[in-house]
Amino acid sequence: MINLEDYVERQMRRRGIEIAYARTLPVVVRRIADSTGTVLSNSIEFDAYNQFWFLANSFELPIGTRITSDTNVMLLEAHSSDIIEEFWGKIKIQLPNSFTGSLCQALFYQVLPK
């Protein structure tokens, strides 16, 4: 298992970027369905421009979750704690159709560069 904070610090140092502020931040994705079971919404979209967001809990998200951003697109195919994905810009988290719960929490490590 990779230590996320160490990994992020090394990454940023390698790229010559100084970290101004960093924190972990949960993002809740809701699945909303009407009374007939039709899914109205199972995704969330938000802005993370000029920031780096690292996904910290991919192993807790349902298989088939798709996260896209300006710099990255990932499809969760297997649960592993050794994959660290990085996002920048408009981030969209899309739950798979097979997910039938009502909410799901993605945990990110948010980095603001100086």
């Binding site: 990454q11 790229r15 300006d70 990255n72 697109v73 990085e86």
Partner: peptide
């Protein structure tokens, strides 16, 4: 399809 490209070991994001 869409392609996102980064150069110089992720230091520079060219765009989509």
């Amino acid at each position: 399809g869409h392609l996102s490209l980064e150069f110089n070991s992720k230091q520079y994001h060219f765009g989509n």
